[in-house]
């Protein structure tokens, strides 16, 4: 690293928050993607929506549970909704709750009631829109919660929430892929078409994701206060995870698999392998992306009388390294 200002990475938000962000984003992404796919490909609409609404529930619940487990005073979690007018965390909390409820409502709505009910598809549509909006908010909140921190110049870019949204969507598609694969095991169910569709769109989204990621990092590299952060990711402590995990495993490989599978129209076992590869690698990449971007966060140096003063390593953690007594 050629920056001579020592940098210290945040140690405040750790794996629980990262897993939380990962799980809720892929849940939200899965829902949104499924909804969009079901609009574009009405023939698969039931399948997509059923899978999405089903998957969202456990993902969200585990995600929320992880967040709660991160809290120091868990019993006070109910207060998380108190401050939506300025706190992105509060907004996120509300969004999560709303999304969860709507998703359950949506999921439990009968697909076609015995006496034909013409208003039902419309209800599905409206509910889908509303739920998607809440899911979008869930997708947005993680990125915004970071991007609104003045103390972390490295995150202060609209590109970060955008990146989180895009990667949430790609992750969501991968969830769908995984679920379709599982469903495919059931005899008599042909999931090939929807699978190809999901793979194909995952590929498109990954292209966008790669572009946004590149833009974000080059933005960070160009900003003096965020340069150290960009370097930690691309050349420093997180470089291996980043290049191998996020770029190759999380973007390039699944992108290749996805597009190839879609355009080569492969079938059978090969398709299953490709899809599995894409979903697993892609999801790991989606997780690692969050891991790297969140863990490497470098807060702004203090500037004192013209001198940049780095806060000590543990600035935001309790200070003591005391050994145990007795």
């Amino acid at each position: 690293m050629n920056s001579n200002i020592p940098v210290s990475m945040q140690q405040v938000w750790g794996w629980r928050v990262i897993w939380h962000l990962f799980l809720v984003s892929i849940a939200a992404g899965a829902y949104i993607c499924a909804f969009i796919l079901s609009l574009v490909y009405p023939q698969h609409s039931r399948l997509f929506m059923a899978l999405a609404t089903l998957a969202v529930v456990p993902l969200l619940i585990i995600g929320i549970a992880l967040l709660i487990s991160h809290l120091g005073a868990k019993t006070k979690v109910i207060r998380a909704f108190c401050h939506p007018n300025s706190s992105w965390l509060s907004r996120g909390g509300i969004a999560l709750l709303v999304f969860l409820v709507l998703d359950i409502v949506h999921g439990s709505l009968p697909l076609n009631a015995p006496p034909p009910t013409p208003w039902l598809p419309f209800l599905h549509f409206v509910l889908g829109i509303v739920t998607s909006l809440s899911a979008l908010l869930v997708l947005l909140y993680g990125g915004m919660a970071l991007a609104r921190l003045r103390s972390f110049p490295c995150w202060r870019s609209e590109l970060l929430p955008l990146l989180f949204i895009v990667s949430g969507l790609s992750g969501g598609l991968m969830v769908l892929v995984l679920l379709l694969l599982i469903l495919g095991i059931a005899p008599g169910l042909d999931v090939r078409q929807p699978l190809i569709l999901a793979l194909q769109h995952a590929g498109y989204v990954l292209v966008i994701q790669g572009i946004v990621l590149g833009c974000y990092l080059s933005w960070a590299k160009g900003l003096p206060a965020a340069r150290g952060y960009a370097l930690i990711i691309t050349r420093g402590a997180y470089s291996v995870t980043f290049w191998v995990g996020v770029v190759v495993m999380g973007i390039l490989v699944p992108l290749g698999f996805g597009l190839y599978a879609a355009y080569a129209q492969i079938e059978g076992l090969l398709l299953i392998i490709f899809a599995l590869e894409l979903a697993v690698f892609g999801l790991v990449g989606t997780l690692l992306l969050r891991y790297v971007l969140v863990s490497a966060g470098v807060s702004s140096a203090l500037s004192v009388e013209g001198n940049p003063v780095t806060l000590p390593q543990n600035a935001r953690a309790p200070t003591s390294h005391l050994v145990r007594y007795r």
Binding site: V12, W13, A73
Partner: peptide, 9 residues
């Protein structure tokens, strides 16, 4: 306080 550490960041 619920201990989310958001203020810490």
């Amino acid at each position: 306080c619920m201990g989310c550490r958001y203020c810490v960041l």
